[in-house]
Design a protein around this nucleic acid. Structure first.
Lengths: 149, 149
DNA sequence: ATAATTGCAAAGTCTTTGCAGTTTG
DNA sequence: CAAACTGCAAAGACTTTGCAATTAT
């Protein structure tokens, strides 16, 4: 292992899994490790599976999907739809929003409080409670905007 | 026909199609009529096809997809991802945002200017230009929030 | 005429599911 | 041991595509 994620961080997440009545398995440990390892990236289920399978070739893609689902239910991970492709997953720690450039596909991370104003307006206006970011904002990044001109 | 959309409105859209180098066909006319007719609703490609086929049973679902694609490219329609299901389409006139309740699935229409503040912050901060709404905001509607308590 | 569009069927992508066997608590 | 989890293969939902025939301009 070159530098893998700290055992501590994995165990913290696994504790949550146990608390939720879930069981700790090799597959789950590996999925969490992959997510920690790819922290800051936008991993699809297939990306996660690929990383998991480097150490545990027998873990099946469908198990990764099921694990990711379970973690999502526990609130440990979030999945985000960046565009038209597959969903991407990341740990729920460090919540943030995403903007995707439809010119070059770049994903920009945005501060978590970006929608505070919007959330407030929705709560006051229609009583709607916004939940975790789950979508991305489409647009054009600075580079593509200059290229347009 | 009970009340179908005004021919005028259809022709306006068709004019845009022609301007874009596209051709006017029965299928396209019918797709546009369906969209006008379902204005305010969130029609999936299948919904559109169903409506189209009431008058023109031979129009194939794949043609509807292609037409919707073409209209999207022309900027005449937008498609929105409301959740995990199929995309929904609507005419680009009367732009608005959507919030979807993950309790009951209700879709709430939101004012178009809701993101003005966010857009400004993004433009000033990272030079990112937000484009048309293309996603929905997840959360819980007022009813489901009360039900939670 | 000729380039766009269509119907159809087939394939593609991403995700879920049934089931029998295995493992965890 | 019982319930949860897994691998596998198959199916499912939604969308796209190749191609030959048709149609708009």
């Amino acid at each position: 292992m070159v530098h893998g994620p700290p055992t501590q961080a994995i165990d913290d997440v696994l504790a949550l899994v146990r608390e939720g009545g879930g069981r700790v398995t090799t597959a789950r440990r590996a999925v969490i490790a992959a997510l920690l390892d790819g922290s800051g990236e936008h991993l699809t289920a297939e990306d996660v599976a690929e990383r998991v399978q480097r150490q545990h070739p027998d873990v099946h893609l469908s198990t990764v999907y099921r694990t990711l689902d379970a973690l999502d239910d526990l609130g440990v991970t979030n999945h985000v739809h960046l565009g038209h492709g597959p969903s991407t997953y990341h740990l729920a720690t460090d919540p943030h929003h995403h903007a995707v450039c439809n010119g070059c596909g770049t994903v920009v991370h945005l501060p978590a409080d970006l929608f505070d104003g919007v959330a407030e307006r929705l709560r006051a206006g229609v009583g709607f409670e916004l939940t975790a970011p789950h979508f991305s904002l489409p647009g054009r990044c600075a580079d593509c905007v200059s290229a347009d001109r």
